[in-house]
């Protein structure tokens, strides 16, 4: 699909093979990955990777840029199938990207319910937009939304699908500092309510510790470290325990702070 939008006209044999690849399995985990390897040419971006995410669990995936964390998310979102290994992932899943990726030619509420089966349900869209605090922006074009509003619309679009698994690809990275704080607490709140499993890909250590049950550190295509965050919510950035965890994680990321 690298060349853009074209499709090959596939033969029935290929179609059957396609279905085999997409077969559904039931399991206790929202994500179960075994021995996942992804190569770009000679370079192994993901090396024999294992990952489990329990239903309702909030997992943050930390890593320096280029370490393969976004590649993993794209594989879980079924946007990249050039892989070897076993990948089982919740069938009901939704993605929010770093850029909101709203269709500019659809009004905000149409964007929210795009792809849902059946009639375009406006009340459902409004309810989802209200949940993220921008119900009053339902009837505008995406171009007039601010960065924070667009990202909220993108979250609404993900949550209206009632996913078992929510994949977040650095959703706050492009927001300004104040908007980011608000968006983070919104995500925490939405997760408390929806109780879906979340995989948050980020390079912001504080964000990971604030939100996640478990923080994974990815390094050179493997999960180098795993840290379970036992602190009660809401978490205090200024607490001593927070500071210890942060220093530890930063150490795993290769950043050593002076004391």
């Amino acid at each position: 699909m690298a060349t853009g939008v074209q499709w090959n006209l596939i033969t029935p044999e290929q179609a059957r093979e396609h279905q085999v690849q997409q077969r559904q399995v039931r399991g206790a985990q929202a994500v179960r990955v075994r021995g996942l390897t992804r190569r770009f040419g000679e370079r192994e971006v993901l090396k024999d990777l294992d990952l489990d995410i329990a239903p309702g669990e909030f997992v943050a995936l930390l890593g320096a840029s280029g370490c393969g964390k976004s590649t993993l998310l794209r594989i879980l979102a079924n946007l990249d199938r050039e892989i070897s290994g076993t990948v089982d992932v919740a069938a009901r899943r939704a993605v929010a990207f770093q850029a909101p990726r709203l269709m500019p030619w659809k009004k905000v509420w149409h964007n929210v319910v795009l792809g849902l089966p059946g009639r375009q349900d406006r009340t459902k869209a409004i309810a989802a937009l209200e949940e993220v605090g921008i119900g009053h922006r339902a009837d505008v074009w995406p171009k007039v939304l601010s960065g924070g509003e667009a990202q909220r619309a993108s979250l609404a679009r993900a949550l209206v699908r009632e996913p078992d698994l929510l994949l977040l690809d650095e959703p706050f990275a492009a927001l300004d500092a104040l908007t980011r704080i608000k968006a983070q607490s919104l995500v925490a709140e939405l997760w408390q309510r929806h109780r879906c499993a979340v995989l948050l890909v980020t390079h912001d250590v504080e964000e990971a510790i604030l939100l996640a049950d478990r923080v994974l550190v990815m390094k050179d295509g493997v999960l180098a470290h795993e840290e379970t965050i036992a602190m009660s919510r809401p978490r205090n950035v200024a607490s001593a325990q927070f500071g210890r965890i942060r220093a530890n994680l930063l150490g795993w990321l290769g950043v050593h702070q002076p004391h």
């Binding site: 853009g4 939008v5 979102a77 079924n78 946007l79 939704a94 993605v95 990207f97 850029a99 990726r101 269709m103 795009l114 792809g115 679009r157 699908r161």
Partner: peptide
């Protein structure tokens, strides 16, 4: 051919 490929991806994740 020039449709934004990130939007096509987004469309695919929306099912």
């Amino acid at each position: 051919r020039n449709v934004d490929s990130t939007l096509i991806e987004a469309g695919r994740t929306l099912g």
